[in-house]
C-alpha cells in the first residue's frame, strides 16, 4: 500500500501560546483509506489538518518540528496551492469558505485562481457537481441554500481541484442527524467509488465508524490510539475513556460482557449476533 499522508514526530506550538498543540504526532494514512479522527474539543485535530495542508507553518508561525509528507511532498516547503491539488481541506463552517454569489462560481473559484482553461474548468466542475449530486443547485445563490447544501457545495468546490486526498474537519457539526448521516454515507461512497483517500474528524462515531478503516484518537495534542475501529473502541472501553462518545451499542456489549475476548460490535447486526450467541 502506498502512503497518502505521512506524519513523523510532528510537534507544533502556536506563536504566543504556552502549550504545544501537537506533541510528537506520528501517523500514516494509506491510499484509499477512510480514516476517522476523534477527540475532545481542543485535542489538536484542526491543527493537524492545517499542518498536513501546509497552512502551518506557512500561514501560522510557531515552534514546528517533525516531518510531514503528502504524496511524497513536503507541505511546509511548497506553495499551498500545490498541496491543495493533492489534498483538499474542507472546513467546519461553510459560510467562511464560500465567497462567490452563485454556487457555480464557488465551485469554479479555485480553478479560476489556477488559471485553467475554460473547457477544463467546465469539465471539472461538472464532475464535482455530479459526485456531490448537486447539479440542481448550480445557478443558486449561497443565500438560498440550507446548511447541508452549503456543506455539499463546500466539498464540491474542493473536489473540483481533483485531489487524491480529502480532508474534512468536523463537516457535520452544524447539521441535523438525518442530514449528517446522508453526508457521511456519501463521503464513504466517494471514497469507495472514486478512490479518494478520506481523513475526517467527526464526533458522531455511531454513524461513521462502521464503515471506517481506521480510528485515530487524539487527546491533548497526542495520538493515544490508532488502529482498526474495533480494537480502538475496545481499548477505550476498557480504559473507561469518556472524552469521545463511543457508539452506545458497543458500550452496552462491553458492559454486559457480551463479547468476551471477541470483537466489539459496531453495528446492530453484529450486536444481534452476539445476543443470539449469548442467549443460547
Amino acid at each position: 500500500m502506498r502512503s497518502a499522508i505521512e506524519v513523523e514526530n510532528l510537534s507544533f506550538k502556536y506563536m504566543g501560546s504556552e502549550f504545544f498543540t501537537l506533541r510528537d504526532v506520528s501517523l500514516r494514512v494509506d491510499e484509499g483509506e477512510f480514516a476517522v479522527i476523534a477527540g475532545a474539543t481542543g485535542c489538536g485535530k484542526s491543527t493537524l489538518f492545517k499542518c498536513i495542508i501546509g497552512l502551518i507553518p506557512q500561514m501560522y508561525q510557531g515552534d514546528y518540528s517533525g516531518r510531514v509528507r503528502v504524496k511524497g511532498i513536503d507541505p511546509s516547503r511548497v506553495p499551498i496551492s500545490r498541496v491543495a491539488q493533492l489534498a483538499g481541506l474542507v472546513f467546519q463552517n461553510p459560510d467562511n469558505q464560500l465567497f462567490a454569489l452563485t454556487v457555480e462560481n464557488d465551485v469554479a473559484f479555485a480553478l479560476e485562481n489556477l488559471g485553467l482553461e475554460r473547457e477544463e474548468i467546465e469539465r471539472r466542475i461538472s464532475r464535482a457537481f455530479k459526485i456531490m449530486g448537486i447539479e440542481d443547485l448550480r445557478n443558486k445563490s449561497p443565500f438560498e441554500l440550507s446548511g447541508g447544501q452549503k456543506q455539499r457545495v463546500a466539498i464540491a468546490s474542493v473536489l473540483a481541484l481533483e485531489p487524491e486526498i480529502l480532508l474534512l474537519d468536523e463537516p457535520t457539526s452544524s447539521l441535523d442527524g438525518a442530514t449528517a448521516k446522508k453526508l457521511l454515507d456519501e463521503l464513504r461512497e466517494i471514497n469507495r467509488r472514486d478512490g479518494i483517500t478520506v481523513l475526517i474528524s467527526e464526533h458522531r462515531l455511531d454513524l461513521v465508524l462502521r464503515e471506517a478503516s481506521r480510528l485515530i484518537v487524539m487527546d491533548e495534542g497526542k495520538i493515544i490510539a490508532d488502529d482498526d475501529p474495533r480494537s480502538v473502541v475496545r481499548r477505550l472501553l476498557s480504559e473507561d475513556y469518556d472524552a469521545v462518545e463511543l457508539p452506545k451499542l458497543s458500550k452496552i456489549a462491553w458492559s454486559l460482557r457480551l463479547c468476551g475476548d471477541g470483537a466489539i460490535p459496531l453495528t446492530q447486526k453484529e450486536f444481534v449476533g452476539l445476543m443470539l450467541r449469548c442467549s443460547r
Binding site: A40, T41, S173, S174, H203, D242, A243, V244, E245
Partner: peptide
C-alpha cells in the same frame, strides 16, 4: 450540546 465533546455533554 453544539461544540461539546463527550465529557462536556456529561
Amino acid at each position: 450540546t453544539s461544540g461539546l465533546d463527550g465529557r462536556g455533554k456529561r
